[in-house]
Structure formats: C-alpha cells, structure tokens
C-alpha cells in the first residue's frame, strides 16, 4: 500500500502522517510514501486549466510504478482529485494523451487505472472490527467531529459504498469505538456535515474565517471537549487559524485533533507516537 500525504500534510502537518502510521501499524499496515509526488491539481490548477488532471494522473502512475494497487490519502481534496482523475482515465483518448505526457517525464511511468484511492477514514472503517479489538481504554470525551466533505461527494464518483454522501456515518462510528461521544451540534444538529470553510480561504479569507467561527461557536455551545478532523485543510482552518477568527473571543478556543490521534489514544499508543502535545485526559 502507498501513502500520498499531499502538499499540506507533507509540509505542514507531519503529525497527521505520524499518527496515521502509528494506528495503521497496529493493524499490520506499513504504507510506503510516494516519492516525487506532485500537487494533486485540485482545486487550484483545475481552476485555470482542464489539464490539471495530468497532475493527479502522474501521482497515480507513481503509485503504479511502486507496484501498489491502493494508495491511502489523508486530505479530502487530494482524495477527491485522485479519484476523479482515475475515473477520467476510463476515457481512452485521455488515457493515451496522459501516457504520452508521462513518457516524457520518465519512460517507466504508466497510468492504466489499476489504483484504488482510499482516504484514511474509509481504510479504517473497513477495518472496524480489528480496530475495536485493539482498543485498550475508553475515552471520556465529547467530540465535535467534522466530516471531510470531499471524501464522500459526489457520491456517484468518489462516494463510499453504504455511506449517505450528505450524512456519512463512517467517521462517527470510528470515534465511538474509542468510547468518546460524537456529539450532535449546530442549529441543525448536523454541523458535523457543515463545511469548515477552509477551501474558501484562497478566494475570500474573511468569509472563510466566518465559516470557521460559526463552527467554533456551535462546538462551544454543545460543550465539546475537542474538535476532530480527518482532513488537513479542515484542521488548518479550525485549529491553526483559530486565533485569527477568535481574536475577540478567546474563550471559544478549543483543542483539535486528527482522527488517528484519537484512535491511537484509545489504543494506548504513546502521545509522542501520535504527534500529540495536548493534554486531554
């Protein structure tokens, strides 16, 4: 199995990769990182040219060259882009053109649409039984999770079998394995499916931060102990940018974890192996 962390996790959030590796290691999975990987192309390059798809196809070809049939991803946007690119490869003309370009990068690169792209949430959800057996303690925590939106929609292309694209349950089930309570929050009680606003940041920072604040106000009202993400973009906004949108409301600050950090804690893994500095228990 290969691991494609994407630009953000690779460069800015190695703790997410570290925690994911620690939890996967307990399941006997030791994914190899994709060397020389490039940006997946979406949404930035896609906003400028339809050729963006060749970036994602290049990454899929790297996975093929490693001899892997599955690549695990950690962010929503790269998951979505890689899966859409793999669908695009079903078009014979595009596949020919993509391979022509890949040949010019390196003669041993080929994209034949044999790679399955799995976001960490999906990979872990498929191993729910094994994970349950690895839990050594129950965490007395109230968790406000945010589903990685691009992992579940559009349902007909990137969706996960058995999951409602608008109300996916996989992450909630994983949280509940740890004994923590996945609280319902927001006016609708459905804010776990409300967008964090992160992807809006590039175009409109103010609106993006307003979406983040909306979310933090909702999690505060439901007295959650922590926020939980399964996407780097989401944590970038909801954790790293908290001070930007909570300048006048410091009491709204809340800790935020990645899903495998929470799972790892319940599995009894040491904090250092999970990239965790927060004291939660």
């Amino acid at each position: 199995m290969a691991l494609y962390p994407g630009c953000l996790i690779l460069q800015r959030m190695p703790k997410y990769e570290q925690a994911a590796r620690a939890v996967l290691g307990e399941l006997g999975i030791a994914p190899q990182i994709v060397q020389e990987a490039a940006c997946c192309g979406a949404p930035v390059v896609e906003s400028f040219t339809a050729d963006w798809v060749h970036l994602s196809i290049y990454n899929l070809a790297l996975v093929e060259r490693m001899g892997c049939d599955t690549v695990v991803t950690l962010c929503g946007s790269c998951t979505n882009a890689l899966i859409r690119a793999s669908h695009a490869l079903q078009d014979a003309d595009l596949r020919t053109e993509a391979n022509r370009r890949l040949q010019r990068v390196s003669p041993d690169l080929m994209a034949t649409d044999t790679v399955t792209v799995k976001h960490l949430v999906r990979l872990l959800a498929e191993r729910e039984g094994e994970l349950r057996a690895r839990m050594v303690r129950q965490l007395p925590l109230r968790v406000a999770l945010t589903n990685p939106c691009q992992v579940f929609r559009p349902g007909d292309v990137v969706g996960i079998e058995g999951e409602d694209p608008m109300h996916p349950q996989a992450m909630r089930r994983l949280v509940e394995l740890t004994g923590a309570q996945a609280v319902e929050y927001g006016e609708s009680g459905d804010a776990e499916n409300e967008c964090c606003g992160a992807t809006l940041y590039l175009a409109a920072p103010k609106l993006s931060l307003a979406a983040g604040r909306r979310k933090l106000e909702a999690t505060h009202r439901c007295s959650a102990d922590l926020l939980l993400q399964g996407c780097g973009n989401s944590q970038l906004l909801l954790r790293n940018f908290q001070s930007a949108f909570l300048r006048d409301a410091p009491d709204l600050h809340q800790p935020a974890l990645f899903l495998p950090q929470l799972l790892g804690l319940a599995m009894g893994l040491p904090k250092e192996a999970l990239g965790l500095r927060e004291n939660l228990l």
Binding site: P43, S47, C149, Q150, P154, T199, L200, A203, A211
Partner: peptide, 30 residues
C-alpha cells in the same frame, strides 16, 4: 462569484436534475 466556493460538492449532490455545477464553475473560472 464563481470563485466563492468551498468545494464541498453539496449543491452537486442535491441537484434534482443532475446539473454539473462543479464542472460549470470550473469552466467559468478559466
């Protein structure tokens, strides 16, 4: 603005007539 979007695919998912909203938006951005 076609640039104001969080790329959450919710509109795309709920559209009853299957409009390719995302594709339309990306095309317009270019």
């Amino acid at each position: 603005s076609v640039w104001l979007c969080t790329i959450c695919w919710r509109c795309h998912q709920v559209c009853p007539t299957g409009v390719d909203i995302y594709g339309l938006m990306m095309e317009r951005r270019r």
